[in-house]
């Protein structure tokens, strides 16, 4: 049996290695300098990066991209961008309240409970992030035929995850001389087909960071990707933290089970 396996293993290894070599010419993905704060089993989101990332989303991306699954209250949840331990209920968080209140959205309609009239009302933490377009036709009309994808789950919905988003945002380079870029499309080195309907969204100093972080394209891309990774799964940090305890417990239980097994079977020959 072992001999058969020793013959087969190299063949199998080759079978896996060959397609890996062939993949070399496809669009490359990059990881930002210093990696991601949230990578690995112990990683958790860098709150400063989340806050800057939210600012980039709000000031740049949100003019075309919706985030339908996010509400303002999410921003104040534990491990989120504006979490403050003084306000365990994110709806009480004054910063989140202000963000919701100041949202630049088409007026929010509410019912006046005294008169029954439909009136404009101020934004609340329970409101969803506003949509940039009233409907998909409006979106198509303003972008030239594309509906910009919703970003709520974008990091989980693309092969390559955070690296993919970061690489696209930083991947607008001069097209190689032998390539003709079609009208209304933009060359991107990391996009699979290299032609992207999205204009290069970021530029140096396009977003001002209050904490003094230099506002380069790469920094903006890294921060907004961190924010989007959080938005894709706000419970990610909680998951990893709980996982440590659960894994420790399970391994302990497995060791105990092994000890019992050895002891019970001691006299069986």
């Amino acid at each position: 049996m072992r001999r058969i396996l020793s013959v087969i293993a190299p063949v199998l290894a080759l079978a896996i290695a060959v397609p890996a070599l062939a993949a070399e010419h496809e669009a490359k993905l990059y990881t930002p300098k210093g990696g991601w704060s949230f990578q690995g089993p112990l990683g958790s989101f860098d709150q400063g990066s989340l806050q800057r990332g939210y600012k980039v989303y709000r000031e740049v991306c949100s003019s075309c991209h919706a985030m339908n699954l996010l509400s303002f209250r999410n921003l104040g949840e534990k491990y989120g961008p504006f979490y403050d331990e003084k306000f365990p209920n994110p709806a009480d968080n004054p910063f989140v309240k202000t963000l919701a209140h100041d949202q630049e959205a088409p007026a929010i309609k509410g019912i006046n409970e005294e008169t029954g009239d439909v009136e404009d009302r101020p934004g609340l933490p329970s409101d969803r992030f506003p949509d940039p377009f009233p409907n998909e036709y409006a979106a198509k009309a303003s972008t030239g035929g594309y509906v910009p994808p919703d970003l709520s789950l974008i990091v989980k919905a693309r092969e390559g995850g955070a690296n993919y988003i970061y690489s696209i945002l930083t991947g607008f380079v001069e097209a190689p001389s032998d390539v003709t870029v079609p009208d209304k499309l933009y060359y991107n080195q990391s996009f699979p087909s290299h032609f992207l309907g999205m204009k290069p969204p970021l530029a140096d100093n396009k977003v001002s960071f209050d904490d003094g972080t230099p506002s380069t394209i790469r920094q903006q891309a890294k921060d907004v990707t961190t924010f989007l990774a959080w938005a894709s799964e706000p419970k990610q940090t909680e998951r990893k933290r709980l996982g440590l305890w659960v894994m420790a417990y399970l391994i302990g239980m497995a060791l105990l089970a092994y000890g019992s097994y050895r002891r019970v079977w001691k006299n069986v020959h």
Partner: peptide
Amino acid sequence: TPYATVKDGFGVALFVVMFGLFVFYMPN
């Protein structure tokens, strides 16, 4: 019982450790 149950118990425990790794650290 106890011979098969304890051995099965150990097998299940090991399997659940692997299961846990997927659920908590690579769920997708």
